[in-house]
Each structure stands twice: as C-alpha cells, then as structure tokens.
C-alpha cells in the first residue's frame, strides 16, 4: 500500500503576523516557513507505519499545492523521511482549488491511505482533507488520533464529541488527523538531509479550476482591555469581581 500525505506550508507558529496591501496580503518578510504541525505529525505516523514491514507500506509520498517557493518545506519532509514528492505548481488559492488540484494530481496514483491535517495554522480552514475525499469519491475519517494496520486492514480511532470510536475503513481513504496521531514530530537527521537533495519532486502544472471563496481583507484582533490586578493576599476578591463585574457566575 502506498501512503500520501498532504502538507501546507505555513508561517512558524510563533510568527507575529502583519498585513500589507491595504490589509489584503500577509507581510511575508522575515517569515520562517514550516510544515503545518499536523502534517508533520501525519508524516511521522506514516513513517512509523512504514518502519514495520508487517504493515506492507511501500512508499510515503508528500504532496503540496504551491509555488516553487515552498520547495524548502517539501525538502524538509523528504529529509525527515518521505520517499518522493508531488508539487502542483500554482499559488495555493482557496481550499476548494487546492483540493481539486490535489485530486487531479493523485487520482491515477493509487494511494491506499491519504493523510491530511485537521487544519492549517494559517487559514484555519479544516476543509481541504474532506474536499479531497469527496473529489476522489472515497471515504474519509475526520478527527483521527490513531492509524494502525491489522491484517492488511486500516484500523482507525476517531475522536468524537465526548469520546472516541474505533473503526475500520476500506482503502483508499482520507485520514484527517489530529492530536494523538504521533507523539513528537520526527526530526531530520544529517543523512536524511543529504539524501533529500536527490529525492524526486514531480512538478505538475495545474488544471483549470475556479475558487469559491476569497479573502476580502484581514483585521487584527481588537486590543483587549488592560488586565485588572487583584492583590495576591486578598485573592478572594477576584471571585467577587467575576461575579459582580464580569457577571460570569
């Protein structure tokens, strides 16, 4: 079985975001780009599955829709251990076009397990994975905290409101992964970084596709009122403030 995982290329999570062009575009100066944290964990889990020969995973491929500027991030995934990469060469537009491009690029490749993250840390969309599954006409499982293969069959844990479910699903399918999928992201070793230089990145030109949404502009959060301090010795006063002023109880 071949595994595909899709990555979005996002600003490092500690970035202080700023906007330019009348707040229509992210100011990318000085930003350090990273693999979206969930996608890095998805990769880690895919590699763990591949490490155990009993699982019969032939290869782990990374896919990304984006311009050549994202190649360092793709190389990082290769350095961590992905075997090869597919990049659809277009500016990542809205989720619908990203998913449509991914679907076109992978439709004929027969991946058994396709992994996406539950959300990108940039647009917090939580939509690409489900859209991709619908475009491919295959099942999806959303909120996946564990993927195992038992006797050739994928066994999944799905987080639901107030609990979890263990389920089996027939391949091919899209796993939309969240917390729990892997403990810590795997780190690229020197050998991996050397090897990544020669691993293939297949560049595909985009299919025609129209976006369904667009960003009008961005806004910064309204500044919160300054913090009101209560003296530690009289900490109990806080409760009265919460009751009478904030009116939360």
């Amino acid at each position: 079985m071949k595994v595909l995982f899709c990555i979005s290329n996002v600003p490092d999570t500690t970035t202080k975001v700023k906007f330019v062009n009348e707040s229509k575009k992210l100011d990318v100066s000085g930003i350090q780009w990273v693999i979206n944290p969930w996608d890095e964990l998805a990769l880690t889990r895919a590699l763990e599955l591949k490490d155990d020969a009993a699982n019969g995973i032939q290869s782990v491929t990374v896919a990304h829709v984006g311009t050549v500027g994202a190649e360092p991030t793709i190389r990082k995934a290769l350095a961590i251990g992905a075997d090869d990469a597919i990049r659809v060469n277009t500016e990542a537009d809205d989720a619908y076009t990203i998913a449509a491009q991914l679907a076109e690029a992978v439709r004929s490749e027969q991946f058994g397990i396709i992994m996406c993250g539950i959300e990108s840390s940039d647009h917090n969309g939580s939509t690409v994975g489900g859209m991709l599954a619908e475009f491919l006409g295959c099942p999806s499982v959303t909120g996946v905290s564990s993927v195992k293969i038992e006797g050739g069959i994928p066994v999944i844990v799905r987080e639901i409101d107030g609990g979890k479910e263990v389920l089996t699903v027939s391949a091919p399918f899209v796993a939309i992964v969240q917390k729990g999928i892997a403990k810590e992201p795997r780190i690229a070793a020197m050998r991996g970084i050397m090897m990544a230089r020669t691993k293939p990145i297949k560049v595909i030109e985009p299919a025609a596709c129209e976006s369904l949404t667009e960003v009008v502009d961005y806004e910064m959060p309204k500044a919160r009122a300054a913090c009101k301090y209560v003296d530690a010795e009289n900490a109990g006063k806080l409760i009265a403030l919460l009751q009478n002023e904030a009116k939360v109880f």
């Binding site: 989720a95 619908y96 917090n124 939580s126 939509t127 619908e134 959303t142 949404t213």
Partner: peptide
C-alpha cells in the same frame, strides 16, 4: 457545527453542492 462532525461534513457538502465554505 465546527466540531469534528461538522468539519467532516462541510467540505464534502462543498464539493457536492459546489458551495463555498467558511469554517469557524
């Protein structure tokens, strides 16, 4: 809802109905 069930269904409905999604 923007819980896991809503996150699972909204994107699939988007493709089926060709409808743009805004989540959360």
């Amino acid at each position: 809802a923007n819980n896991n069930a809503g996150k699972a269904l909204a994107p699939r409905l988007s493709v089926r109905l060709k409808a743009g999604v805004a989540s959360g």
